[in-house]
Nucleic acid binder design. Structure first.
Lengths: 245, 245
DNA sequence: CGTTGTTTTGACACTAGTCAATGGGTGTGG
DNA sequence: CCACACCCATTGACTAGTGTCAAAACAACG
């Protein structure tokens, strides 16, 4: 909640173990810090970057959360994913040098900007950093595969359950509670993301409430019976959500 | 159909512009060639690698096609994606050093094996190669996003249409016909991949046949009216499938 | 306190899943 | 070379689950 008024530093950042600096030497982190550009915090619905825009920088989420999406000529949007603190945005742009999706802020949020030219240069100098980049790429691909698994399920109940467990896991990894969190996205974002209608999201959430598996108060979610929630996804469980990491 | 008896060479390979060597100098390609290991061709259903196995090599598809999937304790499989010639398999393993999905052959197929230790070493020596790896990572992420777009659609008709257009585009990029191709995967693979039942796949394909938009003869697909097929996906079109690249 | 945007609930239609049977192709063995 | 078996794909009948449309409840904001 405290504004990021103090000098930016990866060394002091509580996300350093989850973000790019993970596994780097102190001197290497210092070299990384130098290239990071400050950027004004973004307000809700502010667009960080748009599809087809030339990619000059990658962005790491510092605080808040973001949504990536693709919109068509008619203005319809398909939500591709959500980004939480410590996650790297823009990796899909490195193929052609242009962003392949758009990203906007779901709440007041801040990012660390990593200018590509400097980052590429630095990767050549610091093999560890290159390795970290590779890990981040691979992580994003793995996350995408998890999501496809999610979307490939036909049942809305399973989709909603997996969605909640996925968030629980990610918040847990950030050091927040795994059982209580606030959704930063609207129902229609979730709906769009899961490929079901927002009314169905509502109905599934209230159904889970009535089964006393979760409590829902608007955006506030509390998971009461984690095991029962996990039991719902059993038919498609591939131990993605079974272990903590 | 001719067995790969001749000495392997990226320089002679007709995929070189689509695969890792793209954009490399001749001397650099020669350095890359040296580390590539020969591997016996795989027969249908042969497993190239399995989830959780330690990743010692990446693999590029030389001929044929592959399917990646994740299977759970009960043996149920969720198909994650399909790989065609020139595409790199195993990128999701670099995060933790273990494969996060399994891959099997859909037909008699062959691969180029890229031992990780040598590849990593070579990337440090050849910045161009590192750049190519980055491009491949990014390309996979972009492809994943396209697929999420696909899976995020609720209508089976749209899903099947996008699936056909996606294949058309990929075969086209390989220099094959964009309008006539043979599916190397079973209906139930497609079904599983799209998150719908295989009966629905059948019904949608016959529906498209009756509308004279495509012709279906078992695995053989012929797209008659490309524009009508594209019109079906209009409501969700994000120009992914609109332009040729 | 009213306005606006978001979420929930209800009613109904329709899509797609399930189960079951049929049809086609391919391969093997007599 | 034909007959049978097996696998895969298609089709049909029925039903459960979702989408759609519309209205109400709720929260946030000025």
């Amino acid at each position: 909640m405290t504004p990021n008024s103090s000098k930016m530093s990866c060394l002091n950042c509580r996300l350093s173990d989850l973000c790019l600096p993970f596994g780097l030497q102190i001197t290497e982190i210092e070299a990384l810090e130098i290239i990071i550009k400050n950027k004004q915090p973004l307000q809700i619905k502010d667009v960080l970057y748009s599809k087809n825009q030339t990619c000059k920088s990658l962005y790491a989420v510092k605080t808040g959360s973001f949504r990536s999406y693709i919109s068509n000529a008619e203005g319809l949007e398909q939500t591709i994913g959500f980004y939480l603190p410590g996650e790297l945005m823009g990796l899909d742009a490195l193929f052609e040098g242009r962003f392949c999706s758009s990203v906007d802020a779901l709440e007041t949020s801040s990012v660390c900007e990593l200018p590509l030219t400097h980052l590429t240069e630095l990767c050549l100098q610091i093999p560890n950093l290159q390795h970290q980049m590779t890990r981040n790429f691979s992580k994003e691909i793995t996350a995408n595969h998890e999501q496809m698994l999610l979307l490939g399920q036909s049942s809305a109940k399973i989709k909603v359950a997996i969605f909640l467990l996925m968030l629980s896991k990610r918040y847990g990894a950030l050091g927040y509670s795994k059982s209580e969190f606030n959704l930063s996205m609207h129902r229609h974002h979730i709906a769009n993301y899961l490929g079901i209608s927002h009314e169905t999201i509502s109905r599934q959430l209230t159904a889970l409430s009535k089964e006393k598996i979760i409590q829902v108060k608007q955006r506030a979610i509390k998971i009461i019976e984690l095991n029962l929630l996990k039991a719902i996804i059993e038919p498609c469980n591939t131990d993605f959500y079974a272990h903590s990491h």
